[in-house]
Amino acid sequence: MNTTALSPTRDDIAREIETLILQRVPRVSQKQIALEVGCSESTVSRWNEDEYQRWAKVLALLGLRVVPDSAVVVTAEYLSALETMARIGLKAEKKRPGPLGWD
């Protein structure tokens, strides 16, 4: 499996992060964000897509990903091992003899 062909670029990752941020900000509310970060609601309202884009680029540069709370995150090595086990299991299933007629 060629992981480099499938690996997203840092810009791709930053765009994914920015998209998630922009989707979640309205759900939480500017007031809640302001309370959490210790600034005024008007400061949060002045943040525009450029500010969130900057944050997303920094997170991507740091090698961090942003995912929803419901996401299950595994390492590439774990996923590769799981794919290998699934492939072995499917090969074994194909070689298994059919029903013997009295099952």
Rank of each mutant, 00 (worst) to 15 (best):
N2I: 08
N2G: 11
N2S: 15
T4F: 12
L6N: 13
L6S: 14
P8C: 03
T9V: 06
R10V: 13
R10T: 14
R10W: 02
R10D: 07
D11K: 12
D11G: 05
D12G: 08
A14D: 01
A14M: 03
A14N: 01
R15Q: 12
E16A: 11
T19R: 12
T19A: 14
T19N: 09
T19I: 02
L20F: 02
L20I: 06
L20Q: 05
I21A: 03
L22M: 15
Q23C: 08
V25N: 00
P26W: 02
P26Y: 02
P26V: 03
R27D: 10
V28W: 02
V28F: 06
V28Q: 06
S29I: 03
K31M: 07
A34F: 01
A34E: 02
A34I: 03
A34N: 04
L35H: 09
L35Q: 13
E36H: 10
G38N: 04
C39M: 11
S40H: 04
E41A: 11
T43H: 08
V44L: 01
S45V: 02
S45I: 03
R46M: 12
R46G: 03
W47T: 01
N48T: 13
E49A: 15
D50T: 12
E51T: 14
E51A: 10
Y52Q: 02
Y52F: 15
Q53N: 11
R54F: 08
R54Q: 10
W55H: 02
A56V: 02
K57G: 00
K57W: 04
K57Q: 12
A60F: 01
L62R: 15
G63C: 09
G63L: 06
L64T: 05
L64R: 12
R65S: 09
R65G: 04
R65Y: 06
V66K: 01
V66H: 00
V67Y: 02
P68I: 02
D69N: 13
A71W: 02
V72I: 14
V73G: 04
V73D: 03
V74G: 04
V74C: 05
T75P: 01
T75I: 05
A76P: 03
A76K: 13
E77G: 06
L79M: 11
A81D: 15
A81Y: 04
L82W: 05
L82G: 03
E83Y: 07
E83L: 14
T84V: 10
A86L: 15
A86F: 07
R87M: 07
R87N: 10
R87A: 15
R87H: 08
I88Q: 14
K91P: 00
K94I: 09
K94V: 11
K94W: 05
R96Q: 14
P97G: 09
G98T: 06
G98Q: 06
G98A: 12
L100D: 15
G101M: 05
G101H: 03
W102V: 08
W102N: 12
W102Y: 11
